[in-house]
Write a protein that binds this DNA or RNA. Sequence first.
DNA 1: GTCTATATTCTGATAGAC
DNA 2: GTCTATCAGAATATAGAC
Lengths: 182, 182
Amino acid sequence: MSFPAKTGADAILKVAVDIVEAEGWDALSMRSIGLALGVRASSLYHHYRDKGAIEEALGEVAARALFEAMTVAAGRKKGQVRLRAMADAYVAFAHENAALYQLVAARRTASDTQVAGKALWQLILDGVGQVTGNRDDTAAAVGLWSFLHGYVALEGAGKFGASGAKGGYERGLSAMLRGLIG
Amino acid sequence: MSFPAKTGADAILKVAVDIVEAEGWDALSMRSIGLALGVRASSLYHHYRDKGAIEEALGEVAARALFEAMTVAAGRKKGQVRLRAMADAYVAFAHENAALYQLVAARRTASDTQVAGKALWQLILDGVGQVTGNRDDTAAAVGLWSFLHGYVALEGAGKFGASGAKGGYERGLSAMLRGLIG
DNA sequence: GTCTATATTCTGATAGAC
DNA sequence: GTCTATCAGAATATAGAC
């Protein structure tokens, strides 16, 4: 029977996600993480080199989580049904993990650690390729991803006003898909 | 001949824009604004109630500037030519005023002071309406705006990787317009 | 309208005891 | 691995002299 440590690399990541989702990025500090773990801020430096290392790890967590949600949604589906399911999963993830999502698409990431980010890009590229008939159709993937990100970003920022998006997602997605294929 | 004040509401806004464009939002502080004006931070409180009031004013500046750029681009053009010109102006503005642009589309704004923001939305709605034939086609405007914002946001965050967007803007815009009309 | 001086609070990070 | 203590700096904002 050992003396379990009060915290560890994974536990730190977990509470960091909770803080960011509940109170936003400004509330994430070494002190706030420590408080949530019942530990002093200085102790965290035994698990992560500095705050930047924690944020870097969070980026991987976020990209992997989105990748997995989209992969599950894609399932064994084919063609346009598959792509629509992936798009829906993308938007749902952004809604349910608003702060974490920012790490995937809105924040500039260190070019080193985009392991999960590259997998995500490949997944989108593959889904789009299945409907345009063009494998590696970068331009089409950029178009679709732009629409998806723009929609969740503007909606999340309340830019569609009190009246809301009024079916703009369905309309935009249908238009983009039709336009990319035709 | 009077003793001119070293600063004023407009001068403060001007240097605030410069700081934000040159060094980003984190660099904007009462101290940095004062430094750029040759004035102490405490003096600024005679012109703006607090930092939030400055940011609020910046939001109006940004929305108005984008509105004017798009209006000039639209000129007396009609239909799809007009809408494409507006879209191009939107992207160009975002490129040339990266930090200020975030205030238009990425940051949550106080619902009170969206004067210029509403004018911008009306302009987009009008441009889209001219090509879909539907005045007040909210869903279509949401779709197009989503694509435009998503594109500049992802591009600005470097999410398209070293290879770049590879014609994704033209492809996505054409697809969206075709899809919205057809 | 600007100044000095100050209050208050927060941040990331380190040294060294245990 | 966690602790205390501390550093060094940043931030917003206010009071009162000039």
